[in-house]
């Protein structure tokens, strides 16, 4: 057996694997440029057009195909994602901060938190709906669905921050205290700036996961739809290329988010470098 033959074979396989990962999305993107309203969600492309993108924004004359209810849904989804991001990042940072000291029962608490990302959305969603029913509480995206989103994203933020604190040198904080600075101010002036890249990652995780979440939302959000629920609603009916067009846009949005995150990280790294280089000269 020669190793280079195997390497070539595995390389070719990995290329195919990437086609398998990306192929459907590429096909979906191509079909989103199908002509409308008569063009369907399949090949061949009758004529290239941006009809379905205009349709999405209500810029086309009314047709038999109902527009996706995305405007309100987008606002709700973004609002929900921002709320979830803030709360789960705060919870994640504080819980991870507590885990820096050993304490009894830390194992139980660790698993309690991690459980939040393990338990499927259907189960917590159902449970929350039952609790809300029993207590006679109305379900809304900003109440019952929101708390479940945090249950889901808080563990991610927690694990990210745990990894960050593992590499954090506590003598930096002790140095600050010994200079007469209160623990609270030390956290703000020393700890937080140093863990900020981690906080940014935790925020990105929380926002993306929440923005995309639908199984918990399905049970716990009541009548008002979020974006994923609007897409989920199309599953049971005939799909038109407008959903594909929406898919392209939302994918671009995710990439833009990822790009912003990467740019912010790069900026903070480069700033540290620039200070150094400037002084070197």
């Amino acid at each position: 057996m020669n190793a280079s033959g195997i390497k070539t074979g595995l390389g070719a396989y990995t290329a195919l694997f990437l086609v398998f990962l990306y192929g459907p999305l590429v096909v979906l993107a191509i079909l989103s440029f199908q002509t409308g309203p008569e063009g369907g969600p399949q090949f061949p492309i009758i004529e290239w057009s941006t009809y379905w993108y205009k349709h999405l924004f209500g810029l086309t004359p009314p047709s038999r195909i109902a527009p996706l209810p995305i405007e309100q849904a987008l606002v709700r989804s973004l609002g929900l994602a921002v709320m979830t991001m803030i709360v789960s990042t705060v919870l994640g940072v504080t819980a991870a901060q507590a885990f820096r000291r050993k304490f009894r029962g830390s194992g139980v608490v660790f698993y309690l938190i991690v459980l939040g990302m393990m338990v499927p959305g259907v189960l917590v969603g159902l449970g929350m709906a039952l609790v809300a029913n029993t207590l006679g509480i109305d379900r809304h995206w900003w109440s019952t669905a929101f708390v479940l989103h945090v249950v889901y994203t808080f563990p991610f933020a927690f694990l990210v921050m745990l990894a960050i604190f593992n590499r954090f040198d506590p003598s930096m904080e002790e140095a600050s205290w010994s200079l007469g600075v209160t623990p609270a101010r030390t956290f703000r002036k020393v700890t937080f700036p140093l863990i900020f890249p981690g906080v940014l990652s935790a925020m990105l995780f929380a926002f993306t996961l929440s923005y995309d979440e639908f199984s918990r939302t399905l049970f716990a959000s009541g009548r008002d739809l979020t974006l994923p629920l609007a897409i989920y609603g199309t599953f049971s009916v005939e799909v038109h290329p407008n959903v594909f067009a929406f898919g392209v846009l939302t994918t671009l949005f995710s990439f833009a988010l990822l790009g912003t995150y990467a740019a912010l990280m790069m900026l903070s790294v480069r700033r540290a470098k620039r200070v150094a280089i400037q002084e070197e000269a």
Binding site: D169, S171, M172, E174, A175, S176, W177, S178, L179, G180, V181, T182, P183, T186, V190, P193, L194, A272, V275
Partner: peptide, 22 residues
């Protein structure tokens, strides 16, 4: 008394400088 109220300075073996400050 909490460390920050003691008025005693401390120099660490690894110096523990704040890497984000000049």
């Amino acid at each position: 008394v909490a460390p920050h109220k003691r008025g005693i300075g401390f120099v660490f073996q690894n110096f523990a400088l704040f890497p984000h400050l000049s």
